[in-house]
Design a protein around this nucleic acid. Structure first.
Lengths: 121, 121
DNA sequence: GTAAAGTCTGACATCCATGTCAGAGTCAAG
DNA sequence: CTTGACTCTGACATGGATGTCAGACTTTAC
């Protein structure tokens, strides 16, 4: 599909889709005339990118994990031995981020629990 | 304590402490001469702010939750019923982010598991 | 073959979280 | 008092994610 359709289907502007590509998060094929051509799976990829961004990761970090994610999804398995260390570090960073988010959520839960239950009573 | 000590104890620059105040995340008292005077509990507050920022929240959102958190910590309980919905939404967003990060981490784990174990052999 | 819609690149603009610096006032130790 | 460390405000700067616009080319529909 072309960029317009991907934009419509993901709700992400064409501008950003091109930006993500420049940051190494997407690698659409190009037609002879230069038009970007995306796979069906890119819809999912873009949504995943958006969630990771919303979770506080930057494009550089996301770029690190995307290729392996893709390869795993495509069942090509063993991949990029030279980035194994990067992956391990990334995994640890993800773990830290998860813990932080959980702590934050606990905080919110506590605040909600402290709120009056009879709001409109 | 003054801003310098708070900065040292939290590792957050004075510049940012003033910025957070301007964004409504901190409300230190002021001495007659205008010096900011922070509570012990502000050390914790600042660390919490940092975690929330790292988790992808912006200062505006954090400002929304901080009063409730503070009141909860201080046991003053009932607070801001009008932001309850915001808090719930925020919590759901965090849950979503957590799940996505976990999914990403699982993918990384799978990729790592598929990697050759005899890298240097 | 022409018009409309879609796409390309590249530039400029904005918002947010930060850094840095300057000039002026405050405080504490000698 | 004076000096040095600390603080205040305000301005300018930057990097990252994003918007918008312009000018040129491509594709599709008639």
């Amino acid at each position: 599909m072309h960029i317009g359709e991907l934009s419509r289907r993901t709700g992400v502007s064409e501008r950003l889709l091109r930006y993500y590509e420049k940051q190494g998060l997407l690698w659409p094929e190009r037609s002879a005339s230069g038009y970007r051509h995306y796979q069906e799976s890119d819809v999912d990829t873009v949504l995943r990118i958006r969630r990771l961004l919303a979770a506080g990761l930057n494009t550089e970090t996301i770029a690190l994990v995307m290729p392996c994610v893709r390869i795993k999804a495509g069942n090509l398995v063993p991949v990029c031995p030279e980035v194994i260390d990067d992956l391990r570090r990334q995994r640890d960073r993800l773990t830290q981020a998860i813990e932080d988010l959980q702590a934050s959520r606990d905080l919110l839960d506590a605040a909600l629990a402290a709120a009056p239950l009879d709001l409109t009573a």
